[in-house]
Simulated assay, not measured.
Amino acid sequence: MDANSFLMGGGGAPTAKFPTPGTVVGGHITEPPQVEQQRDIQSGEKKFWNDGNPMMQLVVTVQTDQRDPAIDEDDGKRRIFVKGQMKNAVADAVRAASAKGLEVGGILRVRYTHDGEQKQRGYSAPKQYEAHYTPAAAAQLQNQPAATAPAAPPAQAYGQVPPGVNPVTGEISAQAPAGLDPQQYAAAQQNPNTAALLHQVPPQPGPQAGGEPPF
C-alpha cells in the first residue's frame, strides 16, 4: 500500500484474477509499482522462505476494461501481483521492450497460458504466464491521432495533366490537330512517342465568328 492509500484508508484496486488458461489482464499502469511482502491467503501472515528471507512480490495496478457488478463504482483498475513464474515472464517482457522497468503510463498485459508441473501432492499445479510490455513513451505515441495528410498539390505540378487540359475543370483548352478530336488529342499528349509529333501537325481550325463551320 502506498502512502496515500494508507492515509485515506483505501485498500487498493481489486485483485486481478486469472481463472482459466487464456485469461488476459492488462492495460495502462496507473500508479508506481510497489514491492511488498507476500502474505498467506488463509491466515494473512507474512510469508518467508526456508532461509528466513521474506517472500516478496511486485504489485502493479493497471487500468482494464473489466467491470464487476458486485463491486460498487468499479472503475476497472486491477492489481496484478507479480511473483513466481509471472515475475520471470514480466521481466522478459520488459527486456524485450528494451526498457529499464515498469513505469506509469506503460502498458502491461499478462496472459495465463497453462498449468505447470505439480510438484507437491495437495497443491495446485503452478500457473504459467506470458507477458507483453509497452514503455510509456511508445504507449503515448499509440494513443495520438494519426496526422492528417496534407492536401496534394495540383496534378499539373507533377506533369500528370497533359498540355492543353485545364487542371481544375479537366476541359480541353487547346485546339486539337486536324483529324483528332479533343479527347484523342489529350490521350496523344500523354504518350511520349506521339507527344513530340503533335507539334508538327497544324491545329484543327475551329468555327469562325459569324460564319459557318467548315465541312
Rank of each mutant, 00 (worst) to 15 (best):
T134Q: 07
Q208W: 05
D68M: 11
P205A: 13
Q66T: 12
S5F: 02
N193P: 00
A139M: 06
W49I: 00
A3T: 14
P69W: 10
V110W: 03
P177S: 06
P154C: 06
N4S: 03
Q57T: 06
Q34W: 12
T194K: 04
P177R: 09
V110M: 04
P207W: 05
N166I: 06
H199T: 15
P19L: 13
D72P: 10
Q128C: 05
Q156L: 04
G116S: 12
P162Q: 09
A186F: 03
G76H: 02
S5M: 09
G44Y: 02
N53H: 06
P33G: 06
V24E: 15
Q38K: 12
Y133P: 02
G106M: 08
S43I: 04
V35W: 09
E117Y: 09
P145Q: 07
H114N: 15
D2G: 15
K46R: 13
Q183A: 15
D51C: 11
P167A: 05
V168E: 13
S43V: 06
G10A: 15
P214E: 11
N166E: 14
D40R: 04
P14Y: 10
A149R: 14
P145E: 11
Y129G: 02
T20A: 15
P14N: 12
F6S: 11
Q120L: 13
I107Y: 02
H28W: 07
N193W: 04
R79V: 03
G44C: 04
Y158K: 13
A136R: 15
N50P: 03
A93E: 09
V161Q: 04
A157M: 15
V168L: 13
E212I: 09
E103K: 13
A91P: 00
A174S: 08
D68P: 00
E212T: 11
K83L: 02
A91H: 14
F18C: 06
V25A: 01
Q183M: 15
V201E: 01
F18E: 11
P145W: 05
Q208V: 05
G206H: 08
N53G: 02
P205I: 07
R78Y: 02
R121D: 12
V201C: 05
D40F: 07
K100C: 03
G84Q: 12
P214A: 11
N143F: 00
A96C: 01
T61K: 08
P32R: 11
K119L: 09
F215A: 10
